[in-house]
Design a protein around this nucleic acid. Structure first.
Lengths: 140, 140
DNA sequence: AGAATTTAAGATAAAATTATCTTAAATTTG
DNA sequence: CAAATTTAAGATAATTTTATCTTAAATTCT
C-alpha cells in the first residue's frame, strides 16, 4: 500500500510537527529518535524539500523545518511526493485505460473506496498532531 | 496495493468463471487470451491450487477449474493466497504492534477504511461474473 | 507403446525497490 | 580562517518482486 519510504517520512513529519517550536531539527536527530536508517530517511526527505513541503538548512544548527503551516500540509502530499499518485488514480487491476466508460470487472466497487482512501489521506498534519497530543499511548 | 501476481490471477479467474461450462481450461489458453505471461501465471495459479481454490488436471484436455462453487470463492481468498493477508490486517505505518490499545498516529482513521477494503474484497466471483455478463464495455 | 499435451516444481535471471556509502557544498562556531 | 556539523547528490550494494526457463510427471489419443 505505502512504501517504506513514505511510512518513514510520515512518521518523521509527525515527529517534526510535534517539535515545531525548535527552529530546525536535524534529520540525524529525527532518524535516531524514530529508529530509522539515517541515509535512507535523508534521501527521502530530499524529495519533500524539492516539492516545497519542507525547507532545509545546512551547517551546525541546520536541519529541516516545514515550508508552510501544518494546516496546509496533507498526508496525501507526502504520499504523492514520495510514491506518486497512482494509489489515488489507478485501476485496481492495473488497466491503464480503465474508466467509468470502459471499466474493469471491479471498477464499480473500487472507485468509491479509492475516493475514501484519498479523502482519508487528505487530512492535514495539524489534525494528526492534535490527536497525538490529546490521545494516550499513541506511538510515533 | 495488489501485486502483479494477484491482478493476473483475479483476471484469470474471472475469465475462467465466464467459461465455467468447459470442464477444464488450460492455463495456456487463459494466458494467451488475457495477454498474460504464461510461465508467470502458471506459477501463481499453482498457489491457488494448493489453497484449494482451483483444481488442476494434467495432460491433453487438462487444465484448471474451480474446486468449489463460484459463490464460495471470494476475491479476498485469491488475494490472501497470493499476497498474504497483511493488507487486511496490518498497520498502515508498518508497526507490528499497532492496535486499538496502542495505536499509531493514523490508526483511528485507517482501521475503518481497512475494514471497508476487506469488505469490498469479500465479494464472490459469482457476483462479479453476473455484473460482467450484464454490463457493457467491461474489460477482462 | 509412443507421441503429444498439459500441469508441477524448482532453478535461474531480470527488474524494481530498499538500503548504504561516499564525496561535496553550505553554514556555524571558536 | 579552520574545524565541526549538517544537508545534497549521486554511486553502489542488498533485497525483494517479477519474469523466464528447464525438467519432470501425469494424462490422452492414435
Amino acid at each position: 500500500m505505502l512504501s517504506e519510504s513514505v511510512k518513514d517520512c510520515i512518521r518523521a513529519l509527525v515527529y517534526l510537527a510535534l517539535n515545531e517550536d525548535k527552529k530546525y531539527l536535524s534529520v540525524k536527530e529525527i532518524a535516531s529518535n524514530l529508529n530509522l536508517p539515517f541515509f535512507f530517511l535523508a534521501k527521502n526527505i530530499q524529495k519533500l524539500v524539492k516539492d516545497d513541503i519542507l525547507e532545509s538548512y545546512r551547517g551546525p544548527k541546520g536541519g529541516i523545518t516545514f515550508k508552510k503551516p501544518l494546516e496546509q500540509i496533507k498526508i496525501i502530499d507526502i504520499v504523492k511526493s514520495i510514491d506518486g499518485d497512482h494509489l489515488f488514480r489507478k485501476c485496481i487491476l492495473g488497466f491503464e485505460e480503465c474508466s467509468d466508460e470502459n471499466p474493469c470487472a471491479i471498477h464499480r466497487k473500487w472507485v468509491p473506496e479509492r475516493e475514501r482512501i484519498k479523502n482519508m489521506f487528505s487530512c492535514n498534519l495539524k489534525e494528526i498532531v492534535e490527536e497525538v497530543k490529546s490521545g494516550k499511548n499513541i506511538k510515533l
